[in-house]
Each structure stands twice: as C-alpha cells, then as structure tokens.
Design a protein around this nucleic acid. Structure first.
Length: 411
RNA sequence: GGCAGGUUGCCCGAGUGGCCAAAGGGAGCAGACUGUAAAUCUGCCGGCUCAGCCUACGUUGGUUCGAACCCAACACCUGCCA
C-alpha cells in the first residue's frame, strides 16, 4: 500500500475471479464492487454533491479533457483540488481524456458496436468529416468543442493535468478504439497505448515527486485490445511488465471496444492476467446485466454516464425494467417511480408530477430523475456486493435479471 | 366611412397555375442513449378497405385540361387615415 492508497480483496465469489474488496484512498474507502458516479465537468449534472452522498455514491469521476478546457487545471489546483472545488469530500477519479480521442474523433455520433466482418486492414472505417481529434504516435491534437481553439494532449500532459486536478485515482492516457477499426489498426493502436502507458508512469513518478507532500494519487493503466483475446491478454502482460523506480500501476482500467456479448469474456481474459491485489475498473458500463457479468469476471468498480444522461431524458430504472415517464401513460400516475425504492424522489414525488415537469421543461425533472437513477444503480451494485458476501450472488442475479428483463418496461 | 394588408393542416408559418396531403418550427405520440460536444438525438404526425382512393389551404361561385395559388362576391381579422 502506498500513502493512503491500496486495495484489499475480501470475499471471493465462488471459485471464480469475482470478489468484494476495499479500495482505500486518501479521501475514504470504497467498498467494491462499487459504481462510481460520473460528474464529467466537476458536477453530477443537475444534482448536489450532498444528494449524491445521501444516495450512497461512494466516489465521483470527472474528466481531464473537459476540466482542462474549462475552467483550466490550474484553477482547480488553486482551489485545493477537484474534491474541494466541487464540494465533494469523498474519493474522486479523473479520466485521462482518452475517451475523447474517440468521441471527438472518429467515434462522434457513431455506434461503437458494429459488425467488423469483411473490413480490410486499413485505418478507420468511419468517415468522420469534421473530427475534432486527430491521433498520432506522440499524442492527440484536439480542436476545442467549446471555441474551436487547438490543443495538444500527450501522455505527459494528461498526467500533469490530472495531478493538478488532484483526484485520488487517475487514468493513463490511452487511445479508445471502436469495433469499426480493423484488427491491424487495433494492434497498432495497442502498441501506441502501451508506449503512452510507459510515458504516463514516468510522468506520474515525476509529478508525484515534484508535488510532495500532496496526498498520493493512484495511477491506473487502461487495458485495450478490443474483442481480441490475444491482444487483451498481451496488453495486460505488457502493462504488468512496466515499472518506473520500482513502481508500477496502482490499478487497471478495462476500456475500449466492447460488444455486449463479449463483455464477460473480455473482462475475464483481462482479470485472468491481472494480480489479485490490484483493483480493476471497468470503464463506461452500467446496464444491469452487465454489472453481474463484469463482477463475476473480476471487475471491481464501474463508472457510466447512463444513469444521469438517461434520467435527463426521462428514462427511469425500476426493478421491472426501464420506462420513459414522459409518455402519456403517466399523466395521471399518482404513484412513485418505484414503490420499493428508498430514494428521495420516490419518497416525495409521483410519476405524474415528474411527467408534468418534463412536459413543462422544468429543470427539477432532471434533478429528481437523476437522483432516482443514480440511487437505483448504486444500490444495485451495493446489492451485488452484499450477495457475494452472503453467498447468494447467483440467486440474486437470477431474481433481479429475471424480473428486470421480464417486462418490456412500463408497468 | 376611406386606403392597404391578411385568412394554409392542433398552433405558428412557407408556398402564388401542374413536381402539393402542402417546406420549416412548435405541440402531440413513440423510441434511443454504456470512460458526457447530450436539458440531446431519431421516427411518426388528415382519413381510409393504404403501390390506390377520399377529404383538405375562410365561404360561395367562376376561369382553366388542371387552382392553396387567377377572377368575383361575401364573411371575418389587422394596420394607417378620417
């Protein structure tokens, strides 16, 4: 363990890779498996940090690219770090901006999951005309989506920014590819991501040294390799072989192109190769069935924009599936979103009211619905953790998923 | 009372002889969203026995092979002048 950071596996799930654990950070412990709520620009959109704490969120994840553009990392540094700046006393994570290489680049408004059969060994299939990001071996050039100004991210710059932001867990700068990329491109990209990981580790060591005695920030590498088992496994081995001044990565992120059907296999390959005592964060995943699959295969933490984004668009989770409250069926539904839910919204408001708020375009709709969805997802992962401890994981999964996917949504 | 302009589908609003069941918005209805360029995006949106037909652009009548579009009268509405 390093200066307030560490991971201790607790209960093992059967004889497989899954487990519960405790992730220690300078700003508090995280019981895993855990859902890390996303607050890209240093705020979970529409919700107060106090509410996030009240609904059980253990940690928040923000984004280096977005905060670099606005307000700028030096301001957050001066403010005393991300947590202080946004009034979140608990653990924080920042993503490196690697995902933006994709989302602002070739992946903009594109479906990440696509059939790659028949594709040649060329670079990219997507024809993103007005890409805002261009990758080369040294880094990425961005055009700001805010004002069109040009910026450059390299592994060193991303790590430096993330040190200024001061999150407890930071991620190595990686290239997030899509399933539209050919195998050849995936290989070249992986080599690049690996080189970048090396540079991130070195810069991390420099920053950690230079910024003493600040609280230790943990650096997680990101495992890429798309849907290819050999690439995924090799990626992990390569990352495990890296060390700078005797230090290696504090944890590992699993990212990139994932088809839902491959999720379990991919997480499994990666976790197979990883040591037990390092935490594994699965990036950007939050559908109920995905949690079970990923946890079973060894993932410890998750982050995802889905609960909040979807809530702002009127989609709500219930034990009986997801539905949209803005549909006419809820105009007179004077009942909570979910009778069984213990969230603030369900305790005080009806579907009819939320329906009205959406129709009236009132921003409280976003707030109340985000509270519910975040609570639902946080609790689901909490329940999964509890089921591992009690030995009821399989039963809980069968019960939960059976009910969740039984109906098509509206009940 | 005079002069001028206007009346289009639930609402606003383009269209000025055939390519018009009629652009665009909005509303309505439904759907999507997985490391947030997302309070965003997509589809539907007159009716029917639906590759066709019917009903529709203030009302009535006319011109024309053919009219939301041209002409006449009428009815409302809006500006300006008295």
């Amino acid at each position: 363990m390093t200066q307030g950071f560490g991971f201790s596996p607790q209960t093992r799930l059967g004889s497989g890779r899954g487990r519960t654990g405790i992730l220690r950070t300078p700003h508090g412990d995280i019981k895993t498996p855990a859902f890390i709520a996303v607050g890209t620009k240093a705020t979970v959109k529409a919700v107060l940090p106090e509410c996030m704490a009240a609904l059980g969120a253990q940690a928040l994840l923000a984004n280096a690219y977005h905060l670099y553009l606005q307000p700028g990392p030096e301001i957050i540094d001066e403010a005393g770090g991300l947590g202080r700046f946004m009034n979140w006393p608990g653990p924080t994570f920042t993503d490196s901006g690697g995902f933006q290489v994709l989302s602002l680049g070739v992946g903009f408004k594109k479906v990440l999951a696509m059939n790659t059969a028949g594709l040649g060994d060329d670079e990219v299939i997507a024809t993103g005309k007005e890409r805002l990001a261009h990758v080369d071996d040294d880094g990425v050039t961005f055009v700001s989506h805010l004002n069109g100004s040009r910026h450059r991210f390299t592994p060193e710059i991303s790590v430096r920014i993330q040190h200024q932001l001061g999150a407890d867990v930071i991620f190595a700068f990686d290239e997030c590819t899509t399933l539209m990329n050919s195998r050849g491109y995936q290989e070249r990209s992986l080599a690049r991501t690996h080189t970048w990981a090396t540079r991130c580790l070195a810069e991390h060591a420099r920053q950690t040294q230079a910024r003493r005695p600040r609280p230790y920030q943990a650096l997680f590498a990101v495992v890429q390799g798309a849907q290819y088992e050999d690439l995924r496994r090799q990626a992990v081995r390569d990352l495990l072989s890296l060390s700078v001044e005797g230090r290696s990565f504090d944890g590992y992120g699993i990212g990139g192109a994932l088809e839902k059907e491959n999720l379990g296999a991919i997480v499994g390959w990666v976790c197979d190769e990883l040591p037990e005592d390092k935490p594994r964060h699965l990036l950007g995943i939050a559908e109920p069935d995905d949690f079970f699959t990923a946890v079973e295969n060894g993932a410890d933490t998750f982050d995802c924009v889905a609960p909040s984004r979807v809530a702002r668009n009127a989609a709500l989770y219930t034990p009986d599936g997801r539905f949209n409250v803005n549909t006419a069926a809820h105009r007179r539904a004077f009942e909570p979103i979910d009778q069984e839910c213990d969230c603030y919204t369900c305790a005080h408001y009806t579907r009819a009211y939320l329906h009205h708020l959406f129709k009236a375009k009132e921003m409280l709709a976003s707030t109340l619905c985000t509270i519910h969805n975040e609570r639902f997802i946080v609790r689901l992962v909490d329940d999964i953790r509890a089921s591992i401890d009690s030995g009821d994981f399989d039963a809980f999964r069968a019960e939960f998923l059976g009910r969740y996917y039984a109906s098509t949504g509206v009940r």
